[in-house]
Structures are given as structure tokens and as C-alpha cells.
Amino acid sequence: MTIMQSFTELVHQRQQRESAKRNRPVESEVTKLDVRNLNFFYGEKQALFDVSMTVAERAVTAFIGPSGCGKSTFLRALNRMNDIIEGAHHNGTVLLEGQEIYAPDVDVVSLRKRVGMVFQKSTPFPKSIFDNVAYGPKIAGQRNHKGLSEIVEQSLKRAALWDEVKDRLQDSALALSGGQQQRLCIARALATNPDVLLMDEPASALDPASTSRVEDLIFELKQNYTIVIVTHNMQQAARISDWTAFFYQGYLIEKDHTQKLFTTPKKKQTEDYITGRFG
């Protein structure tokens, strides 16, 4: 049970850090996203089976599970990124603040402005740093250069990248290091001013130092944002999340407070996974 103990320790450290900093309860009571009986299909193949879950506002919810378990599909269902994939369809309900996001009268574009997303592989556009961050507000109709500069600066500051790039905003974003590129992508997502930030393994392609910076950043951001993060790294989930959900073969096995899930999992499969017996 040494693995369990190490998780307990991680969660405990995090709570200490948190209470020292903000003196705020670990978990929020307000429900931001409410998913009910979601089944998801890629053509004939079913990827999610009857998943129901709530996501709390201003908290970090982590999805863990072996690859192919449906956690990324579920994440992408939350801002309808799966719409782009041909043959993808679903049934069930996804409510954002009580509104069905799959309702026929919902505008996907305005949904995605509220529910931003950061991908596993950093995807900077082949443009300058400034243009990358300004892209979201620009397409939303912000034309005023002064306003744009302000948004770019604030977003980069929030993403803890400002100090590193403030002197070279016009340089190509492709010249940044991997970790910087990923934080740039986070800044870019923040610039559209979303409520919810979905992150699909945001640190899996980064070196340890960059990973820890991104984790610190996520920790900061949950003050203002609802964050949902997919990770295959359980230590990471334990370090940064308030809630953790375990997916296996398209089913949601268990979702609980991170501390409880890692210390006293209710289900056998969860325990097997976090103690490393499979996956």
C-alpha cells in the first residue's frame, strides 16, 4: 500500500498549500456542467456508455484511466469538438449551467467561446506570439488595437508567460520552447474569456520543469475558471485536482473527491488501476 500512501501524501501537500494560500474550501458546491446518461458513438463503435457526472464550478476535475477508456471523448463532448469528426453521434444530455449544449438551437461557436480547450500537442498557429493570443478576440469582433494589446498582455500574464515573451511579441510562436508553446496555447484559450477550460493531457509532451510550471498555472487558474483535465499521470491528478473521475472501457467507474478516490476507492477496478495492477 505504499502507492496509496504516496498519493495521500501528495493530496495532503496540496491541501496544505491551498489553505495556506487562499483559505478557501477545497470543493465548490455549485454545479457547472451536468452530464446525464451520455452515450457516444464513432460510427458503429460505441465509445461512452451511459456516463452521468457533474462538474463543480471553480474547481479542477481530473479524468484518469487507461488509454482508449473514453476520457478524451468525454472531454471533447463537453464543447462539441467531436462535431468535426464524421460519423460521431450521441444520445443523452449535457447541461452547461442548466442549458442543453446539444440542443438544435445552440450555436457551437458561442459554446466554444465559453468552453475553451487546450490540446495535448501544443498547436501554435504559424504566426507571431501576439497574433496567436489575439486571434480569439479578433475573430469575436475585437478590432481595437489597444484593447487587443491589453487582452494579450493580461492573458499572457495569467498564463505566466508574459515575463518571458514581453520583449518579443512579434516573433514567431514556433520559435518558443515546448513548455512555452503550451502556456501560449493556454493564454490563447484564456483570451476568449471562457468559463470552462478543458485540457487534454496538457503536460504529457513536456519535460518535468515545464510540466510543473503548467501545473502551477492550472492551480492558479481555478480561482476564476472551471477546469477539466484529462491526464494519464495519476500523480498529476493527485497533485492538482479537487475531483477525480476514473474511466474504464467507456464507462465511468467512479468519481469522487480526489483524496477519497486515491485513498479509499469504492470500486475494485479503481483500486487496481491506481495501485498499478493494470493500465
Partner: peptide, 25 residues
């Protein structure tokens, strides 16, 4: 295609994605 996906995730419409990202690239 990652360029397109990233642009959609920022709330760009299809034409905005094409006009500002795909065609320049």
C-alpha cells in the same frame, strides 16, 4: 488538421478558421 482544431476550440467559425489560419498556411 491540428491548426483547424485549435482554431475551432477558440470559438472560431469555419470560415474564420479557413480565412485566418488555413489559407495563409
Amino acid at each position: 488538421s491540428s491548426i483547424r482544431t485549435a482554431s475551432y476550440a477558440l470559438g472560431a467559425t469555419q470560415w474564420q478558421t479557413i480565412r485566418y489560419q488555413v489559407i495563409p498556411a
